[in-house]
Design a protein around this nucleic acid. Sequence first.
DNA 1: TTACATGCAAACCCTTTGCAATCGT
DNA 2: ACGATTGCAAAGGGTTTGCATGTAA
Lengths: 156, 156
Amino acid sequence: MADKSVLEKAKKIFENFLARQGSRKTPERFSVIDELYGLPQDEHIDVEGLFLLMRNKGYTISRATIYNTLDLLVECGLAVKHQFKDKVALYEQALTYKHHDHHVCNQCRKIREFSDERINLIKEAMGEEFQSGITSHSLVLYGDCQIENCENLSLL
Amino acid sequence: MADKSVLEKAKKIFENFLARQGSRKTPERFSVIDELYGLPQDEHIDVEGLFLLMRNKGYTISRATIYNTLDLLVECGLAVKHQFKDKVALYEQALTYKHHDHHVCNQCRKIREFSDERINLIKEAMGEEFQSGITSHSLVLYGDCQIENCENLSLL
DNA sequence: TTACATGCAAACCCTTTGCAATCGT
DNA sequence: ACGATTGCAAAGGGTTTGCATGTAA
């Protein structure tokens, strides 16, 4: 879970972002940021998960609003959206985000993060080769992890 | 478009694969391989595209059969399935496939292929770190390409 | 006050599934 | 002939959209 100052900082950024484009500061929008940043820093959650989590906590919020808000958070850099091989999109907080990539277990779907500088060398080289301003990338390694009972778990 | 011997080889592999698991050699299955391998070697096509292409050529084939057959082709290594940021899955022939990764333009969605050995170093390092047998990976670079009128094209 | 945001449910889109008809073997 | 495969259309599942209601400014 992100410490308090991170959450506060995120809210500030969000406020500025909303103000800049003349969007409203609704309680729903801030509740989403509260809950996303209330998760462990490296947790990946999908819309349905966030919806259930929030409903269970007593919020009255709709899926549609969560979708909308997450889009906004991605837009202003406060959330990152991932699409692994599964059909649901997963989100994670992005404020204290150091770019990292992911390893996903073929069986249990457990997600682990890593960071390897060499990806940047590839991006530089290809940006040049393709005369393209590379804006982002997605790197996912799939493998069979060694976790006990891996094949019987479904951690996603 | 793959040269004739490649197509023949692919069909042989497919025949053996089907025989090995006691599946039938239906004309539909072979028509899918014909058409997939009739495309330029690096072309990415989705199910709907293949369906329309084949219908226009006079085949009577259903989407369901195309989905089924592509699954089989992926299973026996004759096709590769890609899921970029878009929601449709794209397929390409895989017989003459040297593993490569992709650059996708943020605007025009044009796909270009590249190969950079450094990805293997990353896979080795992470396989060790995570005690995981890495079986595959997906690397996609997103950028703004310099193609004339890029923003007005929709090449996907 | 008034336009934007919300909640709900219906619509969407790609993919999967169920089933009767067909066709390899 | 038998059972796998096909085509079709309906169902599924995640996401998006339309619209009446609510609400920030």
